[in-house]
């Protein structure tokens, strides 16, 4: 009798485990849940649905990725220009005071974008020039009219941070449009003489 009770307990226990497993499968469904996704503009007419995918592509001038500020920089001086800040060469070879640093939202893009910037310190061994000593001014920010390039001066420049700047280099850039920008460098007083190198990152992302 006691043996029968024990067997019944074991059987019930096995049944309980099996029922829990079945319960689990029926609750979650056989296939894994893939979730809903909306990454594109869509329109629905009756029972027809068309989904158009979004694309962004930004292209920078090669010069924008290789910025130099010259080789004679004095400690305690401010507003050194990037060497190509006022040195744009036209197709016919004429040099103007335009900048060679620019980014274009490719015509493949079907949404507008903002371009943000952050950077890291300029270093030479243990010595460093803080990234906030580098600043930029562009013709496509929220507070500058796109056609007004006179604002692209050191006086109107925004300092670069290690984290992404609150003010984008370009705001609401539309497909095919180009943002021009200039870089400036300050050398703190007492800065140790050396050749310093640093870098920045610019990112294009859809205007929210």
């Amino acid at each position: 009798m006691k043996r029968g009770v024990s067997n019944a307990v074991v059987l019930l226990f096995i049944l309980a485990i099996l029922s829990v497993l079945i319960f689990r499968d029926s609750f979650t469904g056989g296939d894994s849940f893939s979730g809903g996704i909306t990454g594109a503009a869509s329109s629905q007419i009756s029972n027809l649905t068309a989904t158009v995918q979004t694309f962004i592509a930004c292209t920078w001038s090669n010069d924008a990725l290789n910025v130099a500020f010259g080789i004679t920089l004095n400690p305690g001086s401010t507003g050194y220009n990037g060497t190509l800040n006022y040195n744009a060469t036209l197709g016919n070879g004429t040099v103007t005071n335009g900048t060679m640093y620019n980014a274009t939202l490719d015509t493949l893009s079907n949404v507008n974008v903002n371009i943000t910037i952050n950077g890291s310190n300029l270093t030479s061994g243990a010595n460093r020039i803080g990234i906030q000593n580098v600043s930029w001014a562009s013709n496509y920010t929220a507070f500058v009219n796109a056609s007004n390039t006179t604002q692209m001066t050191y006086a109107n420049a925004t300092r670069i941070n290690e984290t992404t700047n609150a003010y984008p280099v370009a705001v609401n850039l539309s497909s095919g449009a180009t943002a021009h920008f200039r870089f400036f460098l300050d050398i703190p007083s007492g800065q140790v003489a050396a050749s310093y190198t640093g870098n920045y990152t610019m990112l294009c992302s859809q205007t929210t």
Binding site: A57, A64, F69, Y200
Partner: peptide
Amino acid sequence: GTINAVGSVATGQQFGGSVGVATQ
């Protein structure tokens, strides 16, 4: 957040740039 796709062709100038796109 974003997933960033970044490339660079900096050639060791004083201030090199990395550029890319961020998908939200």
